[in-house]
Simulated scan of single mutants.
Amino acid sequence: MPLFRLDASIMPATSQSRALADLVESEWSAENPGAAVVRRDIGSEPLSATIWREAVTGGFAAEADRSPAQRTALARAAELADELIEADAVLLAIPLYNWGVPAHVKTWYDLTYTDPRIAGGALNDKPVVLASVLGGNYNPGTPKDGWDHATPWLTRVFRDVWGADLRVVQRQFTLVGVDPAMDRFADQAAEIKAAAEQLAIEHGRAIATQVQSLAA
């Protein structure tokens, strides 16, 4: 029962999205001892910014007419798609950067989506957990309400385009304790952190149980 895990933080040593995903993975592994975890860290090893273009143009060309770059891009797209298709569950650790989806995450998504198996809905009903972190507070009524342009897009494409059975755990205020201007929110941030960590544990247990029931 392999779990595929994607990490996207550019600062893995201090990554809060990684820490949140660790809780999901830990619970998954506790429920599935010995199960493999396949990892891809696109924050530390991002894909080329031009590889999606090569895959798209290569897809419109006959095999014999494809350039070496196009063949490489299509092979990488198939590799990325295989990681998702072959997994029993998926864990995505994606932070909010500059109010949007990190560029390297968008490249990973776009390239993977060029594989016809993914575009055809290969992830239908597969359990997926999105672990998302935001530096500030983006809840309704706050000054940054509506500034989170990543979570709605990620939710839309994974759930509605790829057809995943998606669960989301999100932790806000991760810059409290880092940015002195936000220290006054320490108590609220601690409550948010505790609630997010508990939900991450519950999601890890839930997807493990779901996969076990499907395999039974």
Rank of each mutant, 00 (worst) to 15 (best):
T114A: 07
A81P: 08
I201Y: 11
E191V: 07
L123R: 03
R156L: 13
E83H: 09
K126A: 05
R76T: 15
V169T: 11
R184H: 15
V169Y: 03
V24S: 03
G120I: 11
L92D: 02
Y138D: 08
N139I: 03
D22C: 04
Y113H: 14
A55V: 00
R53M: 02
N98F: 06
E31A: 15
F185R: 10
H104V: 04
R167E: 15
A103D: 07
S213I: 15
N98R: 04
R18G: 06
S48W: 00
A35V: 07
A19T: 11
R159T: 14
F158T: 04
T112I: 00
R205A: 14
G100I: 08
A196E: 12
D41A: 02
D183R: 05
L84W: 06
P33S: 09
I118R: 02
P95D: 09
D7R: 12
A35D: 09
Q170D: 06
A208S: 14
E63S: 09
A64H: 04
R205M: 12
P2Y: 03
A194V: 11
A89W: 01
N124P: 01
N98K: 07
A30L: 13
A206V: 15
T174M: 10
E54T: 00
F60R: 03
Y109N: 06
L20H: 03
D160E: 15
I51H: 01
P143G: 04
S48A: 09
A55R: 00
L214A: 15
L154F: 02
Q172C: 12
P46G: 08
F158N: 03
E191A: 11
L130P: 05
A195D: 11
F185I: 07
A73R: 01
V211E: 14
T107D: 03
D41S: 04
D7I: 04
A216K: 09
T209E: 12
D148A: 05
W108C: 01
W99Y: 14
V38G: 05
T107V: 13
P95F: 04
I201L: 13
F4A: 10
R167C: 09
